[in-house]
Design a protein around this nucleic acid. Structure first.
Lengths: 134, 134
DNA sequence: ATGACGTATTGCATTTTGCAAGTTATTTTT
DNA sequence: AAAAATAACTTGCAAAATGCAATACGTCAT
């Protein structure tokens, strides 16, 4: 019935991070917000990787419980909810950035976001700031 | 029988990274090498989080297949193997570093590695270089 | 050859993921 | 006001990954 809560409680910051956002989907949801400006459940569902709706709900609940996302009603559409990053969530930007840089170095395939890598090299701080804004 | 290979093939660098090292254990093994200087199967088994031996073997094989680890015989102990980071593996240092920084900011618990955080603040580049060396 | 060490493998229970279909509540269209 | 569409979930069940305990296989030292 439960689908989260597997804290390792070793006191290690790496384990703490992984327990908080280190599953198969959490960082992809964060990416949808930071890089693609998405904010709603149905927008997340459209992600290229095809997340299942039950998993998406579970991850959104988890990330909200962890204080990384904030859920509120969309003032312009009363049947929609908006998921926004908290400070804690925006602070994940450097991690996402470093993952992108690493993949840029080591992914041999023709990558769609090659332009993003140039942006990062030209103005890393600016790019990170843009991530934080969503 | 298989226990890996779930590439999403979306072309996204974030997904690429997660598919390569984004499971429950891979980055913890990398941490054992980078932060604690471990190199062998039995040393990894002793990690605080208590990884099961079958999972450890699966992760080591996966990371080797991904070109992140290199397995070789220990010249000083012919029944032991040494798992060392490749360039691709050492390049994960900034990601680990950012995860540690993020946890330092947001983990409320008394954290063992608080000293590490000060080191990072005082000399980030030096710390990253030390990670790369293992 | 025996026992200890280091590295695995196997079997089985539990947990998590993935997929397809169904549900509830709120708009919009007719 | 009834019907259709939209948005956010929920449920049931199969498949895969994880976790745990026990066992096995090659060195190596005596």
């Amino acid at each position: 019935m439960n689908t989260e809560n597997k804290k390792r409680e070793s006191g290690c910051p790496v384990a703490f991070g992984l327990d908080t956002f280190g599953d198969r989907w959490s960082l992809l949801i964060i990416r949808e917000i930071m890089l693609k400006g998405k904010r709603t459940y149905s927008e997340f569902l459209e992600a290229d990787e095809g997340i299942a709706s039950n998993i998406l709900v579970a991850r959104l609940k988890h990330l909200e419980a962890e204080g990384i996302l904030n859920k509120s009603r969309d003032p312009d559409n009363r049947r929609a909810f908006i998921y926004a990053l908290t400070k804690k969530g925006r602070d994940l930007a450097p991690i996402l950035l470093e993952i992108i840089i690493w993949s840029g170095l080591h992914d041999e395939r023709p990558v769609a976001l090659r332009g993003v890598l140039e942006k990062i090299q030209n103005d890393r701080e600016g790019f990170e700031a843009s991530l934080r804004k969503g």
